[in-house]
Design a protein around this nucleic acid. Structure first.
Lengths: 333, 333
DNA sequence: GTGAAAGCGCTAACAG
DNA sequence: CTGTTAGCGCTTTCAC
């Protein structure tokens, strides 16, 4: 920047003014500056500026998601990016694969880079470790899963309600022997979905004992194996609620392998690509990651803009999409 | 950091040494410093450090991909992240949706943040605009598409070869009336795939006139509509090569709608989720985004580590995965 | 083994 | 409308 000032024959501050579009510079002077900047291939260094700037904003956001290579997280990421880009804010995304250590490391890496705000999906039991950062004034918004051990904004799907709706959908087709296939219980959303499932059974007056609950599933393979075992048991379920993406796919594979895809009902939580092209189409409770990401970003920016209203928990509804598998009635067997 | 020094009762430089793990500090002194840092919730500011540091590395990478919400790009992103994380390097990812303006803006945003290196998928006709940055010493590696107007490292799939293999696969089943459904011709990979298709026809001695080439497709919907028109024509194709992800899905929809999925052969370029669960399973030429991303990141780091060997073009092979749709022989109609 | 002074590229505050 | 001085948080250099 000093070189630009020298070449343009002006003071350092004048260059700064031109680059930042501040008023108080003659068009002629401004032109000399821009010409000089172009001639020198000058690119301002935002970090140097932020060091002295009063608001100390770096124009960056940290986003922690299960994995950047995951349809749900990718959609959230995209929505965050779309909300951030118009403000000139760039986003760092980190995958943490439900590993608490990677979570902590990623958050530290974000903080050392002085991100303006944080959007987090977490897997630690408590996020109290964020307390100092909150005191420092960094806005933090949780997505997908709610915080624990600390009170912060959160944008989540209505997991229990969605799971209950899926379950009621199956019960309405006459099914009584339901199976629940769920993720690891450490995961808050998994617990919520399980709760919704059990509550729906309760409302229908079905004893919990009649349903089979399988948990701690976290891979397609594991889900497939688990359902295969159930299908091979003497009293197999007539309907299945798979509480997550990969689990749904694993369940489909198991049903196909036993030739039971057309007579066993299936509703999955979270939408699956090409689900409508399968036979039968897969009925799902779809989440709305675009909304979740957008709202989370808006929340961070609102906090950054001074919103100091009480912490909010924003619930984004889910949508039941009927495609066939969930509408198979009892008695098709 | 000054506060830490004061609390620990040591000089500024001693704190700096402890934080950066430099030698020459008594364990006792180091301990006083770390205690003080913890007490004050101190987090070093990497940007401030990099301002003065001799190597001027920010520990960040810029990654430009079609969209963070896109399976192929997501897999590349993940691979880049996995290669970068162990080095303490964070990655900025930007989606540009094949929009040349967004491409330029994103690159400028990266440069102003002084990323150490750039991994780019581009859609501009020429990337000569990167010349000044290259002179400045920023390593730039292209992924997926090759650069033009400038000579830089690139990591790409063997598009022409993969397309030719897919085409030969269809020809081997007796098909002669082939349709090619491709993306916009501005896209370098689209042109390569088209070239592979035509060359395979040529090698089989089939006049180009017998094949139908439809291009400028860039959405599922557009691909579906295009294939519907072909299927409704007096002389519909008996085999289809869809040159991209979304196009493949659109093609499947069109075939289903006309009840031709079981008698018209289909091979897609780039793998599609759940392709094996469809009926028929979709035969594809799969790319290897994990390898592409990993190799690109390794290339950037090698350049950063001083590798000044000539520019390289690294080709990652493709894999033909037979799942049924591509093995439908001529005469099934 | 430790610390003081200078300066990275920029903006704030003020002076002209 | 424009320039000068100080200083952001850190590392470098060099002296103790």
């Amino acid at each position: 920047m000093r070189q630009v000032a020298k070449l343009a024959g002006v003071g350092l501050k004048t260059v700064s003014r031109v680059i930042n579009g501040e008023p108080g510079v003659t068009p002629a002077t401004a032109r000399r500056v821009t010409d000089a900047a172009r001639a020198l291939d000058y690119q301002p260094d935002v970090h140097a500026g932020n060091l002295r700037r009063s608001d100390r904003r770096t124009g960056t956001l940290g986003l922690l998601i299960s994995s950047v290579d995951n349809p749900f997280a990718g959609a959230v990421h995209r929505a965050v990016e779309d909300a951030a880009a118009p403000r000139g804010v760039a986003v760092f995304a980190s995958s943490f694969d439900d590993d608490p250590n990677r979570e902590r490391e990623a958050v530290i890496a974000f903080l050392r880079r002085r991100v303006d705000g944080l959007i987090l999906t977490t897997s630690t039991a408590s996020q109290a470790y964020l307390e100092p950062e909150v005191r420092r004034g960094t806005p933090i918004v949780f997505v997908d899963r709610e915080p624990s051990g600390i009170d912060l904004d959160a944008v989540v799907s209505d997991n229990a309600e969605g799971a209950a709706r899926a379950t009621a959908h199956l019960l309405a087709r006459g099914h009584r022997r339901l199976a629940y296939l769920g993720d690891r219980r450490e995961i808050q959303t998994a617990r919520e979905r399980r709760r919704g499932f059990l509550e729906a059974l309760g409302r229908a007056g079905i004893p919990t004992g009649e349903a089979t609950v399988v948990e701690e599933l976290h891979s397609e393979r594991g889900a497939r194996d688990a359902l295969l075992r159930l299908l091979d048991s003497p009293d197999p379920p007539t309907a299945v609620f798979s509480a997550q993406n990969l689990i749904t796919v694993g369940a489909i594979r198991a049903l196909r392998e036993r030739g039971r895809a057309l007579d066993t009902a299936l509703v999955g939580f979270d939408d699956v690509d090409l689900a409508d092209l399968l036979e039968p189409g897969i009925t799902v409770v779809a989440q709305h990651p675009e909304d979740i990401g957008r709202i989370a970003a808006e929340r961070v920016f609102a906090r950054l803009d001074g919103d100091d209203s009480p912490t909010r928990r924003i619930v984004v509804g889910t949508t039941l999409i009927e495609r066939g598998s969930g509408e198979i009635p009892l008695g098709s067997q």
